Amino acid sequence: MWLSGIKWMFLIIGTMIGAGYASGRELWQFFGTESTLAIVLFSVLFYFCCNIIMKISYEKKAENYIPVLEELMGPRLTRLYDGMIVLYLFTMTMVMIAGGGATLEVLHIPYWYGVGIISGLLVLLFVWGIDGMTSMNAMIIPILITFLVGTLVTFQVTSGFSLQLDFHKQGNWPSAFTFTALNILPLVAVLAAIGRQIKQQLEMKIASIGSSVILGLISLLYNESLLKVANEVMVYEIPLFAILKHYPYYMVLVMTGLLWAAIYTTAASGILGLSTRVHERAQLPFWLIALMLVLLMIPLTTIGFSRLVSVLYPLYGILNLYLLASILLYPIMTKFEV
């Protein structure tokens, strides 16, 4: 029971800690100064979202996100969100595959070889179905967290370890809602796929509390570290490298490996969400679905997505906020149902 709860906890964290989070880009974009309260509030919101999604998934014995969406917002809106989630997961996974190929170029591995490596590992992962995904997260995420936290703590120690958790000026608190909403679609897609595998409600509590506390503490530590190099962050495409600039070169290689692992877990979460949706309509092995999806994505990784992202992401922001509101209001609405 405890082990299952921890397994789901790592699945949640693996879905959340993508390349954007691990690199510091998402945290710096949404938080920064006056954000202690915002991060604490995000942690609380994240707990409620995980717990509610898992509870619905458990009660519905869901194998994909459709039953969860129908419970939250009815069949009509579910059709809209179904299409948006498929498009979101597809484009996100495609960008991750491209990013995985580009990241390995640091190690002088040609781009297409890198794309082939990450694609092959994604297909191999789903030979074991959902169990492969959860086992991979249970293996990789603790290592990823250890390296990330170790780097941040070392930076804090060498720079005086002065965490300024000031609750007096907290004008950035609304960012908690937009940051939570940003990550809600993949969270629904992944957690809705494990409804049949959750055995007891205690597993959901362990997963929800553990993931929200860990992510909250890492976010606070990361944000405070970035604030110390605030003048240099804008120079770097990856804010984490502003922290690492005085470190030996091998640390840059280690953290490049960490970013690649974050890219891989994010891509795996996208494939999981898509595979469980396709599996409902075509009863094919998960690895075969993953292979077909990856083969469809690889040629498209050369397309520039900047225009697509600039149009889609503001739309996703609005839809995600509505979905977040639906999740948070769900316990109240069900309580007053006759």
Results as ranks from 00 to 15, higher is better:
G317C: 09
L293C: 09
T301P: 01
E280W: 05
L253Y: 05
T256Y: 02
S310Y: 07
L308C: 06
P239Y: 00
G270M: 05
H279I: 02
H279E: 14
L240P: 01
A261E: 07
A267D: 07
S310H: 03
V235R: 14
A268R: 03
P314K: 07
P285Y: 14
L284M: 15
I303W: 14
P248V: 04
L258I: 13
L293Y: 01
R277C: 06
W260E: 03
A242C: 11
L296S: 14
V229N: 09
I243W: 09
L259E: 04
A290K: 04
S269C: 12
L272P: 07
T301W: 04
V254T: 08
G273H: 00
W287P: 02
I238T: 03
A268S: 12
S306N: 13
L253F: 02
I263C: 00
N231K: 10
V252M: 11
I318L: 14
L312W: 09
A268D: 02
I303Q: 13
N231Q: 13
I303M: 13
H279M: 05
T301H: 03
G257M: 07
L244F: 06
E232Q: 15
M234W: 15
I271T: 08
H246K: 11
S310V: 00
T266R: 05
F305T: 04
L253Q: 10
L312Y: 08
P248H: 00
